[in-house]
Write a protein that binds this DNA or RNA. Sequence first.
DNA 1: TATTAGCACTCTCCTGTTGAGAGTGCTAAT
DNA 2: ATTAGCACTCTCAACAGGAGAGTGCTAATA
Lengths: 344, 344
Amino acid sequence: MLDERDREVLCAIVQSYINNPDPVGSRFITRKYAFSLSPASIRNIMSDLEELGFLRQPHTSAGRVPTDKGYRFYVDSLCSHEHQYDNRAFFYEITRELESIKNDIDILLSETTKRLSNFSHYLGVALSPKAGSATFNRIKLLKHRRNHVVTVLFTDEGMVRNKVVDVDFDLTQRDLNRIASYLNSEFYGCNLNEIRTKIVREMSEEKILCDTLISRAIRICREVLSSPSGNIFISGFTEVLGLPDFSDVEKIKEISRAMEDKHLIIKLLDKFSESAKDEVQVIIGSENSLAGMKGFSIVAATYKEGSMPVGSVGVIGPTRMDYSKTIAMVDIVSKFITKVIEGK
Amino acid sequence: MLDERDREVLCAIVQSYINNPDPVGSRFITRKYAFSLSPASIRNIMSDLEELGFLRQPHTSAGRVPTDKGYRFYVDSLCSHEHQYDNRAFFYEITRELESIKNDIDILLSETTKRLSNFSHYLGVALSPKAGSATFNRIKLLKHRRNHVVTVLFTDEGMVRNKVVDVDFDLTQRDLNRIASYLNSEFYGCNLNEIRTKIVREMSEEKILCDTLISRAIRICREVLSSPSGNIFISGFTEVLGLPDFSDVEKIKEISRAMEDKHLIIKLLDKFSESAKDEVQVIIGSENSLAGMKGFSIVAATYKEGSMPVGSVGVIGPTRMDYSKTIAMVDIVSKFITKVIEGK
DNA sequence: TATTAGCACTCTCCTGTTGAGAGTGCTAAT
DNA sequence: ATTAGCACTCTCAACAGGAGAGTGCTAATA
């Protein structure tokens, strides 16, 4: 479909536009990229590329601009995925500054997104491990004031989570210990999601258990498991405001709305976690299924725990994004987080 | 200094400008506010008010606009602080929807700021209780994997906080229990800040204790207390983008930078907590000591725990802010949070 | 003496025009 | 197949003119 020359021109246009958001014209291409072709020939090629949907013109007598399809082709077939030199500073910074934060995954992720946005100039995003996919190790119940129980849940993965649970009955610490050991023997090694569904089923079926210790145990456990979605971290709004892509107030509102709708972004990143692909993934502009996110691209990857993806980290920016560099950065970051978590 | 008539005119100008961000002219005043004076007389008054620093003109032949000093006078002497009717819906919403979130103060505050920004159209902010001012009740240490200890700290105020602490020595659960009971007997009833300073002192003085149980206890405790500052919650960026005050990209960058600098806002709100005044406090534009926050106003109040202010909640917006309404809202919110916390 | 009508003046903002500049597509020559 | 040449289109910046809003000042008025 595209011969070598066409590809070269497309590549030059995309790179030039990424570098500087002006529609790129034929003359500019010949001069800047030293093709052994005249502007007129370039124009013919550009015209073909436009026909094929890789480029478009903002208006007659403007240069060309890549379409989402153009970016896609560039990412898949044209851009080099080596960018190690540029990103070396980034790599050193995160390893040097963040390796020590290994006990609090939330802080680690939040700091990571900050660094990511600083270096990429786009939004850094990360999704903390979903509790649901973790494995129940043990639970500890501590009496707090009357009617309050502090629960501390340990997972096999080393996550610790606490929550204060209201109970409508008074329990001694001894009762709590018995409840805890019941839960521990019942659920040891189970996946938290499974436990939740199991509990819901049992609660609807066996109303008989009412007011026994087990029923209380179940009720407490349900409370503990009731907040399933992981935290999301987004950094770098000020950073993106500096980009020429956001010199327009409408564009700013758009990305701000997208950011506010955290649920949508969570959903999106969740998809990444599910598709257990190993590489960095890229969603470009309108490929996105979310209405509010068309116009932006997402570059993301998962980080793993015991070879299972448990969360994701990435970058959101304009479609006019330095994909090559960003992909390399996200790759670095996802591997780094995996390493920190596993090495814990 | 200002007679009754001058005040009325100033009040009209401020209110008109708050209502609609156009410089207000003499003719407009006479018509809208039905003064029994001609535009020419109003002009004379306005000229006086400008001389006194309450008003300024963006340019000759524009109307007048309040200065920070003008807003200050308005807030202190002119505006009515009754706004109950307008805010009734707001009051109902927060009491109905948020009262149930009493076990997790962070979620309560974050939801509160969301509601606050929705109703005010400005940024809602809140500072969670500073751990330092709380009172040690007891600590529980649980063995996590090798070299990791899960600490659960209870305060008299009912706060629970957990943290995973790395230790460079292996301890049995039994050791941990002994350490915990040492800490419990040593620090029961102490203020957390005191404990921290005490620990720092002891660690520098008595190196002798090295490698004993007590030294280990102290080390763990220090870790637990090492993150002193409270969380900050800010909501409503999309909300403020809708205001005419932020139709300019520069203004947007300004407020975005201010938001990113969370430390500064924390500092600012901390001051509110310290000055133990009971009322809602207002900082207008350049009264602010923070460079990045000039140009914005802050309306904030503290919420209390046992009649001690422990955190603050408020609103950040343009100096052209509906002070009357906002002050009433912040008042409602701060009292609401106090009630929820105390009633816990 | 305080108030006001009248008027000249200033400044912004909108609109329309114009010319430069950049880039294109097409055609004919190489 | 490539390219030079040219007419055409579109944007953008600069400029001018006119409407509109508001002011300050002065002289007349109650």
